[in-house]
């Protein structure tokens, strides 16, 4: 860490650390949290799509049942 850099420096350049990286804050926790968020949001989307597919499957089953009933009635009538 250097003491001369200004907020503006931090906003315009990223530089590689020389030697060992000294962590004064829990940057690792923030990084892992951010990384976890990406996967949690993605999994939430997968669950949402799954729910949509389930609703579609129910509607398809309803339609199939109605068509089967109509075909059976037609057969009965000759």
């Amino acid at each position: 860490m250097t003491t001369q850099d200004t907020p503006n420096d931090r906003a315009t350049t990223f530089q590689a650390v020389e030697g060992n990286a000294g962590e004064h804050y829990s940057g690792a926790t923030l990084l892992v949290s951010a990384y976890a968020v990406v996967w949690v949001v993605l999994l939430a989307w997968v669950a949402f799509v799954w729910r949509k597919q389930s609703a579609l499957a129910t509607r398809v089953e309803d339609l199939e049942r109605v068509l089967d009933n109509a075909a059976a009635e037609r057969q009965k009538r000759g």
Binding site: M1, T2, D5, D9, R10, F14, Q15, A16, V17, E18, A21, G22, E23, H24, Y25, G27, A28, L30, L31, A34, Y35, V38
Partner: peptide
């Protein structure tokens, strides 16, 4: 990717924050 000199490891959020 190296750890950023001034911000430390938290800068690595940048690699998926900006692409998101």
């Amino acid at each position: 990717a190296p750890v950023e000199a001034r911000m430390g490891i938290v800068q690595k959020i940048f690699y998926f924050h900006v692409p998101s």
